[in-house]
Write a protein that binds this DNA or RNA. Structure first.
Lengths: 251, 251
DNA sequence: GTCAATGGTTTGTCCTGACATATTTTGTCA
DNA sequence: TGACAAAATATGTCAGGACAAACCATTGAC
């Protein structure tokens, strides 16, 4: 019997030690590729850490770190005394903080944005509190109507502190708010969302091209960047007939 | 000038090296306590890793691991060349996979459950597919009406594969489904949720004590345990007038 | 024949040591 | 005084070794 029997064969990978990309990350990325492409089948056991590290020419801590990375992302499961297994792809999808604009782009629909209101003004108390900024601090206040194709989809209200990013109307027409925030270095990393439902008022129904009394999804959100700075407050209305939230959660 | 000036003082902690609890976890837990109790103020910089490790009598990798643990939970932020800072508590809440039952308990309301249907039967094709089990495999099928106080709150439908847990009607009346799953060793770790809205049919309105046409929140969810085994499928209806989802997301 | 002990395999934890790299501060020179 | 260079400081990465603990399968005793 030979060591190969102990686990699925992980193909050799070429590592670049001169690259600024960390070794553990290179290993993790190749491993992920091979899993996604099916070179390492779902449910199969990997070779043990020591052998793997040996064969790839890295130390065991580095190998462990690469594996840990994939374990945290839900692709692998480790069991002490047993080994490391590839889990089912269904469970693998990463949690993502995405905006409606991103979602539409990904699903192949053409997002279009009509800006109905755009002004810099002091934040209302309730919003200042949600953002954790002083009462009366200035924010950019936006009302946008988001279309998918020709159909209106969502009526969105946002407040962004002016010291986070100086928004311009033109940029907002072409890009999603989250793209602009990311580009400005304020990557949204955490968010608190409340999702509810109510029926449309007459005015809302007219704007969204729905009947009065139609069900609407409501979402209010506060988002923070990695440093804990509040970057966005949003209060949105979605047509329930055309949109629903898809979420992937991890404990 | 003395080294103490380099960062906030982290009080000494007592570590138990004979305990089965890992050192890094002991360190992380004490650190978390001190942050939560305000001993280490929000926004302050910690001492550098080497000093901290030195003073607590652990190696730097162990210290780093403890800090990394808190960084992943969003309590600390590290910047290379700068230091480690305590972030604002608002951002800190951990992502949790909780059930409605848990949520109600936490918010101090008294949850009560009326079981309207309970049977073991072959899974409908659509549900079998969501769970990733063979067509016709047996599941426990449940319809429950959940009350908060005296008011009906949600009408819940669930399917749980029989090989995951053998549910009993009595247990479900006293406990939430997630508690039972946890106790059986199938801790829900990942979930895919779709949240939408629609108006109540006449039958649904009668059960939920709402008017016909009242807005309802809909949620369908599939949950998996750490090993990637599907443990639960749920399709729920919530009264929008009495309930909304609160979510904490991390990228 | 059944149950308990045992040994091998594998991951989990922890240590020491070293060098790399990003950032800020200090110091020097024009 | 201003700009650039160098040093100090902090986290990031990587190696190699050692022991602990959980799990599984086999062996052995009753």
């Amino acid at each position: 019997m030979d060591r190969q029997a102990s686990g699925a064969l992980v193909p050799d990978v070429t590592l670049d030690r001169t690259s600024p990309v960390p070794l553990y990350y290179q290993v993790a990325t190749r491993l992920q590729q091979q899993i996604e492409e099916g070179d390492i089948p779902v449910g199969s056991r990997l070779e043990n850490e020591v052998e793997l590290a040996d064969r790839l020419g890295v130390s065991r801590p580095t190998m462990r770190r690469a594996i840990s990375y994939l374990v945290e992302r839900g692709m692998l499961v480790r069991k002490r005394g047993v080994g490391t297994q590839v889990v089912h792809p269904k469970v693998r999808r990463p949690v993502e903080l995405s905006s409606l604009y991103d979602d539409l782009l990904k699903s192949g629909q053409a997002p279009r944005t009509e800006i109905r209101e755009f002004e810099v003004r002091p934040a209302p108390d309730q919003i200042a509190e949600a953002l954790g900024i002083p009462f009366g601090a200035e924010v950019t206040w936006i009302e946008r109507l988001r279309f998918a194709g020709d159909e209106p989809l969502a009526l969105m209200h946002n407040a962004v502190p002016v010291d986070v990013i100086r928004l311009r109307r033109e940029d907002l027409e072409r890009n999603g708010l989250y793209d602009l925030l990311r580009a400005a270095g304020h990557v949204p990393r955490m968010a608190n969302q409340v999702v509810g439902a109510r029926v449309a008022s007459a005015g809302e129904a007219r704007i969204l091209d729905e009947a009065r009394g139609a069900p609407l999804l409501t979402m209010t959100r506060t988002a923070w960047d990695a440093a804990g700075k509040a970057v966005e407050y949003g209060s949105h209305l979605y047509r329930a007939s055309r949109y629903s939230f898809e979420l992937n959660l991890t404990s």
